[in-house]
């Protein structure tokens, strides 16, 4: 691997990796707060991508506005999901998890009924003339994805650490009983967390549309890798999700430059090895182990 290929694939890997990171954060947020692995997350991402794309492609709304509309609708969907899952959670966490799986399948099939299976091609929202530096050319849209993802993550951190609502969400995640005693509406906090996680998925879904292709199988292609990234970094940890997402993106791209057909196989073999050596993930903490 020469230097040019190395740097070029590093940039490409970071681009797709930041998408995985956003998806992984969604998984981790929900897991940390509710102890729940949300199996509908990938499907939510796909529905979010479709909603944003329909606004952007068919109704010619501005790309950023399309992202915002999709985020709002998907955020509401996430909160509704908590209401549906709440009675299940009272029985056992496992039922709740089955519930997310069911919701995921419903969303998947609804999407196929509404939008069909053909998929939609999305054009870049900016003029995507590559910037050339020496032998390396950078696709501006890749940089847009990286910067936008970083901004979203910073805004999320600010929200969780500096606002009252964010602090309330964190406290309800850490000490559910104590928060209840203090008169906090834990159900609302759970709903907000699911909503917030879903918004991240929607943003990731709409942003990746122009690079890939918006189709129903996005939920497995992007969703599953996002899930794996969350676990690789340390399930439940936000920094872990970021590291996991970027690692997966870079790993996949770098392996693909060497042995293209094997990129998924090798990326997941490395994933398994990391987990064998460090079962709690790269930055995993035992504290969040709620199950």
């Amino acid at each position: 691997m020469n230097g040019t290929v190395l740097i070029q694939s590093l940039i490409g890997g970071l681009g797709i990796g930041s998408i995985y990171a956003l998806v992984a954060i969604g998984y981790s947020l929900v897991y940390r707060t509710m102890g729940l692995a949300n199996f509908a997350h990938g499907n939510i991402l796909m529905v979010g991508a479709y909603i944003g794309t329909v606004f952007y492609v068919s109704m010619h709304t501005n790309f950023i506005i399309a992202i915002i509309i999709s985020s709002i609708l998907i955020g509401i969907l996430g909160m509704v999901m908590e209401r549906i899952l709440r009675p299940l959670g009272k029985m056992d966490l496992i039922y709740m998890m089955l519930g997310t799986l069911g919701i995921g399948i419903v969303l998947q099939n609804l999407a196929i009924i509404i939008w069909g299976t053909d998929g939609i091609a999305v054009q870049y929202p900016i003029k995507n003339e590559p910037w050339v530096i020496g032998n390396i050319s950078i696709s501006p849209y890749t940089l847009v994805i990286i910067c936008a993802s970083a901004t979203v993550v910073l805004a999320l951190q600010f929200f969780l650490h500096k606002t009252k609502l964010g602090l309330a969400m964190r406290s309800s995640a850490q000490e559910k009983e104590m928060s209840l005693v203090l008169g906090m509406n834990v159900n609302l906090m759970n709903a907000l967390t699911l909503g917030l996680g879903s918004v991240l998925a929607a943003i990731a879904g709409v942003m990746v549309g122009p690079v890939f292709y918006v189709s129903p199988d996005m939920s497995s292609s992007v969703g599953i890798i996002g899930f794996a990234a969350a676990i690789l970094g340390g399930f439940g940890s936000i920094p872990g999700a970021i590291i996991g997402g970027l690692t997966f993106g870079v790993l996949q791209t770098m392996v693909a430059t060497q042995v293209s057909e094997w990129s998924q196989v090798i990326a997941f073999v490395i994933f398994v090895f990391v987990l064998i050596i460090k079962p709690s993930g790269i930055v995993g903490e035992r504290v969040v182990d709620k199950i």
């Binding site: 290929v5 490409g12 890997g13 292609s221 996949q252 430059t257 293209s260």
Partner: peptide
């Protein structure tokens, strides 16, 4: 001579090799 899987959507790696 790059080969990808039939369901691949991200070709950054292969195209980087080709570009080199």
């Amino acid at each position: 001579d790059e080969v990808v899987t039939p369901d691949a959507k991200d070709f950054t790696a292969q195209l980087t090799n080709i570009k080199a």
